[in-house]
Amino acid sequence: MQRLPLSYIKPGMKTYEEVIDANGRVLCGKGVELTEEHIKRFEELGVTFITVEGNPVPLPWEKSLEVELAELEERFKGITDENLLEIKKSLEEFLKEKYLESEIQEIFKKY
């Protein structure tokens, strides 16, 4: 998943969540492959950001799952509080799902 400014959006990218305009109207559903027409319409209606599937654009601040998990360990080093460890667990789950989703997209692209 990546949330990108409209200027980064290219035809062929797939929406990860609904695209909603300023008035709360749904312009486009989830999992839709975007076309030139979609993008033009978003521009006209003042949409600024779109969330797309996978990692279509390399962003300098994005890390790999391994790095994310290693840094997570580092931030929780020595922590024994159960509540904090539960937060850590949900973060791990969240991160793994986020990266798994991107990997699946990569595999789909190859075939």
Binding site: M1, F76, K77, I79, L84, S90, K98
Partner: peptide, 28 residues
């Protein structure tokens, strides 16, 4: 390092930690 969590915060907010993942999903 992650700062320490005061349990009372969860009580005051009536927040269940099982909802954390959903918060991370909205936040990302």
């Amino acid at each position: 390092k992650v700062p320490s969590l005061d349990q009372n915060a969860l009580k005051i907010l009536n927040f269940n930690l099982s909802e954390t993942k959903e918060i991370f999903l909205i936040l990302e």
